[in-house]
């Protein structure tokens, strides 16, 4: 069976939409018959990217977040974009445990989780224009890996 699908969703940068984004992506993934682990991995990665956009995307204000998803056979591409502040130093932002908001008790593990749970991660940002996260994953390509990976190793 050929599986091909594409969707674009635009929503406000509010915390309650983080769960909505996860659910939308999970529902779109179902036809691929993912394992429980793959499903959780993608949901976690989406949650991290959307949470980043909500917390950091528009500083104190509010804006829109675009979620785009493309499915082709067993390959998925997820793009999460905001049109806000942007990231000045992407390399620093991606360092595990670095956070620009320790006041909010952020763990600084967002990008590390995206990298750990997806096959490919690309971050593009320009200050004042916004940030775009593109993540790719091939479903059904890996064995269940519970307990084998540790980003600090």
């Amino acid at each position: 069976m050929e599986t091909k699908n594409h969707m674009r969703i635009v929503f406000d940068s509010r915390p309650q939409n983080e769960g909505f984004a996860r659910m939308a992506v999970a529902a779109a993934l179902l036809p691929l018959n993912p394992t429980l682990e793959e499903m959780s991995d993608v949901k976690t990665a989406v949650s991290e990217a959307v949470t980043n956009a909500v917390i950091h995307g528009y500083e104190q204000g509010e804006g829109e977040i675009l979620l785009e998803m493309t499915i082709e056979e067993n390959e998925i591409m997820i793009r999460i974009e905001d049109f806000g502040t942007g990231i000045r130093d992407i390399k620093k932002a991606m360092e595990p445990l670095y956070t620009s908001r320790p006041d909010l008790e952020r763990s600084g593990m967002g990008f590390a989780f995206m990298e750990a749970f997806m096959d490919e991660l690309k971050v593009e940002s320009s200050p004042g224009r916004g940030t775009q996260i593109v993540m790719k994953k091939t479903m059904g390509s890996r064995e269940e890996t519970y307990g084998s990976d540790d980003i600090f190793n």
Binding site: S47, L104, S107
Partner: peptide, 14 residues
Amino acid sequence: TDFMDSSGIGVVMG
């Protein structure tokens, strides 16, 4: 609990 992202890590670490 069956879902937790890095926000949860932050609250436990905190």
